[in-house]
């Protein structure tokens, strides 16, 4: 298969970027999207040009490192999959593919398609944990947890922190990310102890970092590679508002 690629190139955070057009040829349909970019980069190296910088690591859809806005969609054309899990058979032979970095004020571009997502780390540092010390904990089976609750907690915990939610949101809102963590812990008895404090602290940090406001479009859940439901956003709203009303 052959493709024309329109790729955003940007030297560094301060420089102005622009699209550049490349061609890749003889790509097997079984090649993954990132492998296709590897091939492009290898060609560029042979031509003595700088390869396109993009984030990636596990290539199994779990580390959350890969990003990319492909033809207008975060993580490309598949639902419930990361960019590394997209295969070229998803595209038509001869297609022109536009590849852009995440675009959100809170995710500044570092280079080409690489963005800085440390804002997500900062939100979690604000309260995305249960304050237990190593070794000062009860037996694992001391607290029974209804299976349904554990399952729901796991649904939310599946978040890989890739940033697709904020990147795809027309408001640049990180609500799905924040909600996934808050909701996952709020569903467990261990997490209830700090639930109110956590919800308030994480929302405050999210606001401080300049993420936008959720307007319930649901675009985040549509583009989330782990298909995390906006029901978790509802739970975050509930947790947050009830915490605030108690203040």
């Amino acid at each position: 298969m052959n493709f024309t690629l329109k790729i955003w190139r940007q030297k560094d955070a301060k420089s102005k970027g622009a699209f550049e057009t490349y061609k890749v040829e003889n790509i097997s349909a079984d090649t993954s999207f990132l492998e296709m970019l590897d091939i492009l980069n290898n060609n560029l190296v042979h031509e003595g040009k700088e390869p396109v910088a993009f984030d990636h690591d596990c290539r199994e859809g779990i580390c959350g490192m890969c990003s990319l806005h492909i033809d207008g969609q975060a993580h490309g054309p598949s639902q419930g999959a990361t960019t590394c899990q997209i295969y070229m058979r998803k595209f038509e032979d001869g297609a022109t593919i536009t590849i852009e970095p995440w675009r959100s004020a809170a995710f500044p571009v570092i280079k080409d398609l690489v963005v800085n997502r440390s804002a997500y780390d900062q939100i979690l540092q604000a309260g995305g944990f249960i304050s237990v010390r190593t070794n000062s904990v009860p037996d694992a089976n001391a607290i029974p947890i209804p299976k349904a609750d554990a399952d729901e907690s796991m649904d939310a915990a599946a978040c890989i922190g890739c940033g697709a939610c904020a990147a795809t949101c027309k408001n640049g809102s990180a609500m799905l990310f924040v909600a996934a963590r808050v909701s996952s812990l709020a569903k467990l008895p261990q997490g209830r102890v700090e639930a109110a404090r956590r919800a308030k602290a994480m929302v405050a940090k999210m606001d401080e970092l300049g993420f936008g406001n959720c307007t319930n479009t649901g675009a985040c859940q549509a583009e989330c590679p782990k298909s995390i439901s906006i029901a978790h956003i509802a739970r975050l709203n509930r947790e947050f508002l009830s915490a605030k009303l108690e203040d």
Binding site: G72, F107, K170, G172, G212, N213
Partner: peptide, 14 residues
Amino acid sequence: DNYRARGKQRYAVT
């Protein structure tokens, strides 16, 4: 707020 959060550079394709 949301306009600011979106950043200056917009997607070419949506």
